[in-house]
């Protein structure tokens, strides 16, 4: 870490990044080269692991020249996001209800535990029978399997607050609404977001698995179609698109986490307090 205030010139920065990442690039190139050669010489059967160059041409075909993948890409992305939104909505509202109302929590808990120990994926055929072959069944499966981690994390965050703080709130005569808004909800947010991140990943898995079982569109269908045609290069290229979806989902949640739970990271906390100071100064001027 450089401590000097002098901004490093751009060319220097690029050089710096280049030097830092050069070994990685070299290693990557060596791996790819070795892989290509071992497939080309027949050391590895190309039907099991295709050549990198074949994967690259499949990527070019799928993403650039034909562009067939984008429709499937957005369908799977939508299924995962909508399923996650439904699952998270139900999970957070149930968690809030059961944190506020003890009997409710007692009677909901056994069912939540039963739902958790059942592998949600086992429901796939049943869900497809219930919701049909379209996007509905994928959304439903994504919602069901993303429900539990979010529910548990939100509930834990809402219930396990620091007792001293709760004591302080009570002794200052805070109302129930104040305790919830200023103590429980902020305490729960970091855990809630951790749950959201797990939930998003599982929602994507749910959408893809439901597509494997029965669907007409989506990257899962594309993947199983290419695999059964033994077109390994294209199915690896499709797998890449799932990685991209996963990365998009994860990093957008990370971004939201950073903005909403701003007090956890020092730099974000400072930025938020600067912004508040500015608005207050502006108000004072008026």
């Amino acid at each position: 870490m450089s401590v000097s205030d002098q901004p490093i010139p751009l060319s220097g920065r690029i050089l710096d990044i280049g030097v830092r990442f050069l070994p990685h690039f070299v290693l990557f190139a060596v791996i790819i080269g070795a892989w290509e050669i071992s497939v080309a010489t027949g050391l590895i059967k190309s039907i099991i692991i295709p050549r990198p160059s074949a994967i690259w041409s499949a990527i070019v075909e799928l993403y650039i020249t034909e562009g067939t993948i984008y429709r499937h890409f957005f369908i799977t992305l939508t299924e995962a996001v909508v399923g996650f939104a439904i699952g998270a909505g139900v999970a957070v509202s149930l968690a809030i209800a059961s944190s506020l109302w003890d009997p409710f929590r007692r009677y909901v808990t056994p069912y939540a535990v039963v739902l958790n120990v059942t592998p949600g994926i086992a429901l796939t055929p049943v869900i497809i029978a219930w919701f049909g072959y379209g996007m509905g069944s994928k959304i439903a499966l994504a919602a069901i399997i993303s429900f539990f981690p979010i529910f548990v994390n939100t509930l834990t965050g809402l219930v396990q607050v620091d007792e001293d703080r709760e004591e302080l709130f009570n002794s200052l005569g805070a109302s129930n609404v104040q305790v919830f808004r200023k103590l429980r909800a902020p305490a729960a947010l970091p855990l809630m977001f951790a749950g959201f991140k797990i939930g998003l990943t599982t929602a994507l898995i749910g959408a893809v698995v439901a597509e494997f079982a029965q669907a007409t569109d989506g990257v899962g269908v594309l993947m199983s179609r290419f695999s059964f045609q033994l077109n390994m290069a294209a199915s690896l290229a499709t797998l890449l698109s799932m990685t991209v979806i996963g990365l998009i989902l994860f990093y957008s949640m990370e971004f939201l986490d950073d903005r909403i739970v701003f007090w956890r990271r020092e730099s974000r906390r400072a930025a938020a307090s600067r912004a508040r100071a500015r608005t207050w100064a502006a108000q004072a001027k008026k």
Binding site: I205, F212, M223, S227, F228, M232, S235, L236, L239
Partner: peptide, 12 residues
């Protein structure tokens, strides 16, 4: 990457 998604590939 959703790791279960590799299933069809491995089966092939």
């Amino acid at each position: 990457t959703p790791r279960i998604a590799v299933a069809p590939l491995l089966i092939a």
